[in-house]
Structure formats: structure tokens, C-alpha cells
């Protein structure tokens, strides 16, 4: 009984010291400590403790923490690293999306383009060569390292083994047919699909390299943003 009473009052001693008890609780504490030497001792010790804590000497600040004008800008920036990182991440994501799209387009379409080229080079090439094609075709063939004359027999042999517009062109047939598209697009007056294919994949742009460069640029941007954030901290 005595222990239970002591425990109950013990819970009230701290708020009693801070005058955070009700009138009834106050009367209960004051009535109890008059009779209980243990609670009275505990109350005295708590009173001394709080007085001692309130008398702890303050340590002087080792320096002034006043904020200088120069410190504001880095502080403001460091306060919004999320904004910087969000912006850079958005740009990087866009670049990666473009790189992926280009990569898919380049990997997916050349087969069709090559197949079309093989078909056309074998079908149209003879007339085109007779009209206005030879100089440009020869130049292209020279730049690709194969003689212009060699392209036609190779294409013809490819058709002979069944390569056509509706089939996936085997890898060896594509290089042989490469010189054809510029010749068609350049001035043969060939059909519209042939012209559009030639325009979409201009030989002056190396699409896989461009896609790789965009991807690397995105990675570099993210790395730079995180470096700046780390450096500012």
C-alpha cells in the first residue's frame, strides 16, 4: 500500500515542482510528503536538481555565428539542392530518351532501308545509271571503299538468292547495297518512298555515335550535379 502510494506521488512530483498539477493533485502531493519521508526526500532532491540545472553556467559561443552576405548565396543554393538535381535529372532523362529513340530507330530501320536499297538498286539502278547517277554513285562507292561497279553484281547476286523487299536482309548484303540510296535520292526521279527513306537517314550524321554522345552527356550532367551538391556541403 505504501509503495503504491509512493509511486503514485512520484509521478506527480516533477509537475508539482513546475506548478503543472491540478488543485486536487497539489493537495494530494502536499498531504503525502508530510507523512512520507521517502517522498519528501525525493521532492527535495528534485528541487535541488532543477535548481542546479537552472544554474548551469552557459558556455560562451566560440565565435560569432552572424551570417555574412557572401554566405547567403551558397546557403540559399545548398538549401535547394533538390531543385537543381530535379532540373538536371529532367534534362538527363530527356537526353536519354532521345538517345534511346535514335538508337531504336537506327537499329530497326536500316534493315528495311537496306532491303529496299537492295531491291531498288537491282531494279532501278540500271536506268538510273544510264540517266544521271554515275558520278555521285561512283563517288559514294569510292568513299565506302568498294568500286561502283562491284555494287551492282553484288546486289544482283543478293536478289538471286531470294533477298527482296519483304525479307530481312542478311548482313553481308547490306554493305554491297549501301551506295545505292544516295544515287536514288540524288537525282534519279525514283518513287516517293525511296526519296523519303534517303532523306530520313542522311549519311552525313552518324546516328549510333550521336545516341552514344547524348547518353554520355546525360550521365556527365547527373555526375556534375551531384559533385556540385557534395562540394557545397
Amino acid at each position: 500500500m505504501g509503495d503504491k502510494k509512493l509511486e503514485h506521488v512520484s509521478d506527480l512530483l516533477s509537475p508539482y515542482l513546475d506548478d503543472q498539477v491540478t488543485i486536487a493533485e497539489r493537495q494530494a502531493v502536499e498531504g503525502h510528503v508530510r507523512e512520507c519521508p521517502q517522498c519528501r526526500l525525493q521532492l527535495d532532491e528534485l528541487r535541488n536538481l532543477t535548481a542546479a540545472l537552472g544554474s548551469l553556467p552557459a558556455r560562451p559561443a566560440p565565435r560569432s555565428f552572424v551570417i555574412g552576405p557572401r554566405a547567403i548565396k551558397p546557403a540559399a543554393l545548398s538549401g535547394t539542392p533538390g531543385g537543381l538535381l530535379r532540373a538536371v535529372s529532367s534534362i538527363a532523362a530527356s537526353l536519354l530518351f532521345v538517345a534511346l529513340s535514335v538508337n531504336l530507330a537506327v537499329r530497326g530501320l536500316p534493315r528495311q532501308a537496306a532491303a529496299i536499297s537492295v531491291f531498288r538498286s537491282s531494279e532501278i539502278r540500271p536506268q538510273a545509271a544510264a540517266a544521271s547517277g554515275p558520278p555521285l554513285a561512283a563517288a559514294r562507292a569510292a568513299s565506302s571503299g568498294a568500286p561502283a561497279a562491284a555494287a551492282q553484281p553484288a546486289a544482283a547476286s543478293a536478289r538471286a538468292v531470294g533477298v527482296g523487299p519483304g525479307t530481312n536482309t542478311p548482313a553481308p548484303a547490306a554493305p554491297a547495297a549501301e551506295p545505292a540510296p544516295p544515287a536514288i535520292g540524288a537525282g534519279t526521279g525514283a518513287s516517293p518512298p525511296a526519296a523519303s527513306t534517303g532523306a530520313a537517314f542522311s549519311p552525313s550524321i552518324d546516328w549510333p555515335v550521336l545516341a552514344t554522345e547524348l547518353g554520355l552527356l546525360a550521365i556527365a550532367l547527373v555526375a556534375a550535379a551531384y559533385s556540385v551538391r557534395w562540394w557545397r556541403r
Partner: peptide
């Protein structure tokens, strides 16, 4: 916290700590 501090303080400091 006060109850714990009271336990942590050596007995001879509990009563005289505040003066």
C-alpha cells in the same frame, strides 16, 4: 528525465548540488 538524472547523480551530490 529528472528521475533518471537523480539516479545518475552520485548520492552525495543530490542534496547539495543546488546549494
Amino acid at each position: 528525465a529528472r528521475a533518471r538524472l537523480r539516479e545518475l547523480l552520485p548520492e552525495d551530490l543530490r542534496l547539495k548540488s543546488g546549494g
